[in-house]
Design a binder for these strands. Structure first.
Lengths: 355, 355
DNA sequence: ATGAAAGCGCTAACAT
DNA sequence: ATGTTAGCGCTTTCAT
């Protein structure tokens, strides 16, 4: 069942030369006469010769491939990051190997081990939401494996990072709600150990504080992603609506939470934005087609992938060890649609003017 | 910058044994004494030894990895197929390498060459919509590379295939529209060379014929995916609506066409389903959250991935050449939502009764 | 300008 | 039960 491809040896035999001559001729070495080169290259083409990258990798101790760990490919944010990664990797001659952590710490470790032993030349990493301890990553990094974090980075590891301004994302979304006139704003957060979560949360708090709205801990609900997101979100929303002063708006900190909230509210027959406003992070491409179209913060996923890949390839191809690392911060963007409403009742002077 | 991992040689030196003893001990060969085995295995663990899969691949002429070509990871159908593939591959000890063809014939060829030269043990393939000629695939297949097609298969190549009953999908969707009372049903198709397209189209025709509705070629619009899908679909719909008897319903044959149609109709301010009904193929998970929730045909993407992977691994691990190939046909499922409406005006006897 | 030979890490046929 | 050796396909040093 195995098929055998043409090797350098085959060509050498056919042309009655040595393997080294073939190897050199194929790579255009200056030591080989033009005539021989031409002969070899033409013959190679005629038999459709392809160098065996496995053998090359073994020899050169590099694979010209980079490993990527995403949470889920079935998430628009990550699939667009992948497209960004591929666009750069492809043009620089690298291949991309993708694994999914499915938000599991164990799978993250398994994948990491696989990829590193598989001799990827570098790693593009976004932490799983379950990851609390990053020593497995640190170990690889200290052994010299080039790693670039994207989106969800580990503070403890000093390497290149490409993230977005999560504080700003949380701030802008919340600020928009406040400007619209909402005052009782709930916040759906996820994995507390991710810096990203904390930052978005801080942005939320800052926006509240600036407008003199007091921070209410009971308005903040953490979804641990331990069971079905939808169930978790439903439960959170149920609790929120049972509060003596239920929120008039929700800001969800992730794609899945945003969709979960939309689903849960619909299921509960609650009108958006009339009964409650909703905004959140999402990269969904059909956000305009939803009911209602969602006011949402979108991350520059494609650009994140591109930038991270450029940095990684820089690391891989650097002649001497890199010791100065940079953190690139991209800006998320809020698009206002119909799930948040400019409330007339706040157009007057009852509340502090907001600019 | 490179880091050097522990090799069998290192262990052999440290323990003063031969590399073959180490190799055998590590793989638990019966020829090695329990004592030696234990010693070696413990030492290996203590130095965190990992076999180098590149070297293993080179030696064994297999990589324990399978290549997958999808059109786009950023398409729910394909990302769910990938999840299905991974779930099986993972448990059988295979790794998955994903490439995207982006519906381009050239990229399909490049990826195919890369993957095959990269010594994947087998290939899971879905044709790009631009692929008309499959001789590049045929060549690989004839060389003995195990290939399983999923979803979009090449008729000319005799190998395992996992597809859905596309005829049934087209038939059921159209039939549903007819049952609702729609009579002027348009059909948005894509790449004419794909069998899948033809089958869905046939299903559409059959449903019409059974109800005595004459087939109107001007109701069938082909979108070539040559430019932005949205623009193409918009143009198609514009043409449809300008017909003397514009359609009262649209059946779209692919995910992107369905979303494109929804977008175009919304943009044109046309109400669904009041002014025109819409149904189509889609695997979007947010289909319930759309406005309106779409009546749609969903493909069992996860199962397709699983089944295709099982068949492929069967092929890879088969002792003798497989000559009898099977085509597994899964059933798509129509879910009725709000983008199609039971029209009262057709509840009477004006039109032939439909059961 | 070309060839011979070693070696990347691993496995396995063939000794012993 | 363990060691020796060859070889997977390629690159590269060292001869010639």
């Amino acid at each position: 069942m195995k098929f055998k491809a043409t090797t350098i040896k085959d060509i050498a035999k056919a042309l009655d030369m040595s393997t080294s001559t073939i190897s050199r001729a194929l790579r255009g070495s200056y030591e080989i006469s033009g005539e021989t080169k031409k002969l070899v290259q033409e013959y190679a083409r005629s038999v459709n010769y392809r160098p065996n990258p496995i053998a090359q990798s073994l020899k050169e101790r590099r694979s010209r491939s980079i490993g990527v760990i995403v949470s889920e490919v079935a998430n628009t944010f990550f699939s667009n990051v992948i497209n960004g990664i591929e666009s750069i990797a492809y043009s620089r001659g690298y291949h991309v190997i993708i694994s999914q952590s499915h938000e599991s710490y164990e799978r993250e470790i398994t994948n990491l081990n696989y990829l590193s032993s598989r001799s990827v030349d570098g790693l593009l990493l976004s932490l799983s939401s379950a990851t609390k301890d990053v020593s497995h990553i640190k170990a690889l990094h200290e052994k010299g494996l080039p790693i670039v974090f994207y989106d969800r980075a580990a503070d403890e590891i000093d390497t290149h990072k490409v993230i977005i301004d999560n504080f700003q994302g949380g701030y802008t979304a919340t600020r928009h709600l406040i400007k619209c006139g909402y005052r009782r704003i709930a916040h759906l957060t996820f994995s507390e150990q991710l810096t990203l979560t904390k930052e978005r949360w801080k942005g939320y708090q800052q926006a509240l504080a600036e407008s003199g709205i007091s921070y209410q801990p009971e308005y903040v609900k953490n979804c641990r992603h331990e069971q079905s997101v939808l169930l978790e979100v439903e439960e959170c929303i149920r609790q929120l609506l049972q509060l003596p002063a239920p929120p008039d708006a929700i800001f969800a900190a992730s794609d899945r939470l945003t969709m979960g909230a939309l689903m849960a509210l619909k299921k509960g027959g609650i009108c958006i934005p009339q009964e409650i406003a909703l905004t959140g992070f999402t990269n969904s491409e059909t956000v305009d087609l939803l009911h209602p179209p969602l006011t949402a913060v979108k991350q520059p996923a494609f650009e994140i992938g591109q930038l991270a890949t450029e940095l990684l390839i820089g690391l891989i191809e650097s002649k001497r060890p890199v010791t100065r690392f940079e953190t690139r911060i991209l800006m998320p963007e809020l698009t206002i649609r119909d799930s948040t409403l400019q409330l007339d009742r706040y157009q007057n002077t009852l509340y502090p003017k907001l600019t």
